[in-house]
Design a protein around this nucleic acid. Structure first.
Lengths: 196, 196, 196, 196
DNA sequence: GATGAATGAGTCTTCATTCAT
DNA sequence: AATGAATGAAGACTCATTCAT
């Protein structure tokens, strides 16, 4: 249904509105369940939390990846958009990189199970994988190149690899008080520095 | 049972020998299945691969953790033992640390799913967790302290955390040609260096 | 959901009707299987008999105790309700007690394995246990007290114990033509009489 | 091997002695395990307790019923033999019956799970069933007839049925403090009394 | 569009029993 | 005779996904 339908009857309109509201409810519920049970929580739990039927979830989000993407899209986008801004305002490109990575880590660390799923080779998560990569790798590349151009870091680092590494370091970071992903990521970023 | 039983217990001993051989077969089969299907492969698959019954696996390895430990024990032990040796032969403690970590990474990277399971908070894997930690953390601590004492690295790094981080970086390292865990771990270790 | 939903929820309602019918089918099937294989028959057998999937049983009756209770609820309730009625219509309270117990025995004797399960200390049957007790012990207590008040029986008999005893006497009563639980229970009830 | 072998070599003799000792060990172990885990305890547990192999148990006692019979034979025999004695020494036949039944109850109540197995229609327990019946029913019949002859009880009571009833009342008598099998059996026996 | 009932594949785990050594 | 390793049948339970209403 395209926007040109707008003029259609009140019923259709309200149905669209209902559906939209429904979708939103679903996203809120999913987000809440993800927090407590992780992103691999049973579909039924999410449906129950949202107060909708199972079919409704499958209609709106055919795969789990679709649902996860929808839940975190805003945050991922915000993170992506923060990259250039940080580059503009930070003292050095390397500092910008560090801050941007911190943003990503902060996001990831609080998403129970997301980091794990992000590296899963399960085909069902391909689109999720792709989404994160499409959105964040270019930004990371930009920051990396700026830092390399400034001579702060080596120029042989691949953004994809770095993002994957950072993602991996975030796995299981909640649930283990002796493990601080942020600290390790800091080491990783520090390790990028060009040796004097 | 000492060797002096040899005369009396020929039969028993040969049975023992058979069982031992069987256990080895099992270990080989498990290792093979772990490579292709990961360390969480169905017990039945492993039994099939080994050509034994289900019960035989449960007899030798009551829990999956037991099986995993048995499969990798030699390699983990070898890794643990290599630590002090490297310290003695390397140019600097930091170099020894790097080489030792590389050993660990080489081991882990080839074990499909092991790194993932190593951070799982599933209670069934507690003993597995403990085994790796008991074996490797002390060695890592030793190397870390030596490097700190030599003034090469900061002295605030926790061996447990570092091992977890390295383990995490190894997750999914096979199966993705664009991701090289070794390179990232190198960055991490480089990041430990004391800032001048 | 009230009846005023009728207009809006025709579909939902007919689905509910289907499910209810299905549940009934399930109950019938379970009852039938219980007769032939006892109340501990494999879940799969019941599903097969009912022509439904395994999951359907678990949906309607999460535990075996739930299923057993559902199958026999009507009869247990009927038995419980018969108590006061018998008290009102029988010649004496002791006669009422005897007749009521007979009702219970008639019920139990035909339920292959139920009596056995009723005394099992298996935790899974706790709710089953509780249901029978909650439903029948108070009635039995009432009858016992009436008979005691009438001076027909001793007043030191515990209803719980008596019910358990009667239940036990019913174990294996089918399948053995030489064993008549009714006769023995009669002796037991006769034994309650106050000695002159 | 008949007693005429007695003159055979020391080796054979000592082997016989060993086997006998072994069997005794086994019976002790079985008795102990039966106490803690019931008469349906895993064969392996008994073997472990006895410190012998599984095969040894199966050699001596091909079926579980054989083992149970062997373990309790002495006590069952003693009970059987006590019948006539009690008849001779008690005040009345009915009193003798009561005391004899008490003996049986005392025996049964302390044998975790035995009463349950005694009524099981599982074919594997047929010989066990038969043994108890063969041994005890005649005694019970004798007592019953004596009491009937003395005019103390009705003459229409079947010993087999009574024994089964008493056995049933003993099921689950341990493990439930609110249930006293002895008290109920007393009621049952009291119920036998001829109505005045 | 929404619902949620139904399905059933997939896994784990226990134990009685056999039989080669 | 004794041993105990090996077997595999049996049964429970979960959850993603489909589809009739």
């Amino acid at each position: 249904m395209s926007d040109s339908d707008e003029g259609a009857g009140r019923a259709a309109q309200s149905k669209r509105a209902d559906a939209r509201r429904n979708k939103e409810t679903l996203l809120d519920a999913a987000a809440a369940v993800f927090v407590t049970s992780g992103v691999e929580a049973p579909v039924r739990d999410i449906a129950a939390k949202a107060g909708v039927g199972l079919g409704t979830i499958y209609r709106h989000f055919p795969t789990r990846a679709d649902l996860i993407i929808a839940v975190y899209r805003h945050q991922v986008d915000a993170c992506a958009e923060a990259g250039p801004a940080l580059l503009a305002t930070s003292a050095t490109p390397h500092a910008a990189l560090g801050q941007w990575i911190n943003l990503f880590v902060d996001f990831l660390v609080t998403k129970h199970g997301l980091a794990a799923v992000l590296q899963s080779d399960n085909a069902g998560f391909d689109t999720l994988h792709a989404y994160f990569l499409d959105r964040l790798v270019p930004v990371c590349t930009q920051l990396l190149e700026a830092a390399a151009a400034a001579g702060e870091i080596r120029s042989d680092t691949d953004a994809y690899e770095l993002m994957r590494g950072v993602g991996n370091l975030c796995i299981g970071a909640d649930s283990d008080p002796r493990y601080d992903a942020r600290r390790l990521v800091e080491l990783l970023i520090a390790g990028l520095r060009r040796p004097h």
